[in-house]
Computed example of a mutant assay.
Amino acid sequence: MKKGMILITTACLLLPITGKAAQLELSTFASSSMLMAAQKSSQQNLRVKSRQQATQMVKSQYGGKVLSVQSSKVNGNPGYRAKLLSADGVVFYVSIDAVTGQMSRR
C-alpha cells in the first residue's frame, strides 16, 4: 500500500495537470494502483491463491477428471467451483473456499 501511495505522490509532484483529461488519467492511475495493492494484500490472506491450486486440491481429494474450475463466492468468501467427472461417469461439483481451504462436494 505504501508503494502505491508513493507512486501517487510522485506522480502528483512530477506531472503537470492541465485540463480534465490529465486529471482523469491521474485519478485512473491512482485508482488502479490502490486496487492492485489491495488485491495483493487480500491474496496473501488466502489459503487457495489460484485456479491451478484449487484444481490440484480437488484432484487429490476426489480423484476423477476435472472438467472445469471457475471463480465463485463460497460462503460469502472468494473461492472456486469445480466440475468433476468421477471414474464411474457421474458429474459432480465441489466448492472450494479460498479463505479457509475447505472443500465440499455437492
Rank of each mutant, 00 (worst) to 15 (best):
V74D: 08
F92S: 13
N45L: 11
T28S: 14
F29K: 01
A30N: 11
L85H: 00
Y93F: 11
T9W: 14
L85P: 01
I17V: 13
V66P: 12
M103C: 12
Q52K: 11
K3I: 13
Q102A: 08
Y93V: 06
L14Q: 05
Q70L: 04
L67C: 04
L24M: 10
K2G: 13
I8T: 09
F29V: 02
S41L: 05
T55V: 07
Q39D: 08
T28N: 15
S95R: 10
Q61T: 09
S41E: 12
L24H: 12
N75Y: 01
S31Q: 14
R81I: 06
T55P: 07
R105A: 08
Q39M: 06
V94P: 15
G76D: 01
T100N: 03
Q70V: 15
Q44N: 06
A38H: 09
L24G: 10
S27G: 02
V48E: 03
G79L: 01
D97M: 00
S27P: 09
R81S: 10
S60A: 15
A21T: 11
N45R: 04
L26D: 06
R105I: 10
S86D: 04
K40L: 12
K83A: 07
L84C: 07
T100I: 04
K49S: 05
Q44P: 00
V66M: 08
I96T: 12
A38V: 07
Y93T: 03
Q53E: 14
T18D: 14
V74R: 00
V94L: 03
A30V: 04
Q44T: 07
S41W: 06
D88L: 01
M103R: 04
S60L: 02
Q43I: 05
R106Y: 08
Q39R: 13
M5H: 14
T28P: 01
V94Y: 13
T18L: 11
L85G: 01
M103K: 04
S68R: 12
P78W: 01
K40A: 08
S50A: 07
Q23F: 12
M34T: 11
T10S: 12
G64V: 09
K49L: 04
V48I: 14
S42G: 00
V69A: 03
L26Y: 02
A82G: 09
Y62N: 02
F29L: 15
R81W: 02
L35K: 15
K3S: 14
F29Q: 02
Q52I: 13
I96N: 07
M34C: 03
G19C: 00
Q52W: 05
Y93K: 12
Y62H: 05
G76N: 00
S86N: 04
T18F: 11
K20N: 10
T9F: 13
F92Q: 02
S41G: 09
L67A: 13
S33F: 03
T18A: 15
M36K: 15
A37M: 09
A37C: 05
S104R: 13
Q43M: 11
K40T: 14
L26W: 02
V74G: 03
S31E: 15
K83D: 11
A37G: 09
S60N: 13
R106H: 09
F92I: 03
N75W: 06
K3V: 14
V58K: 07
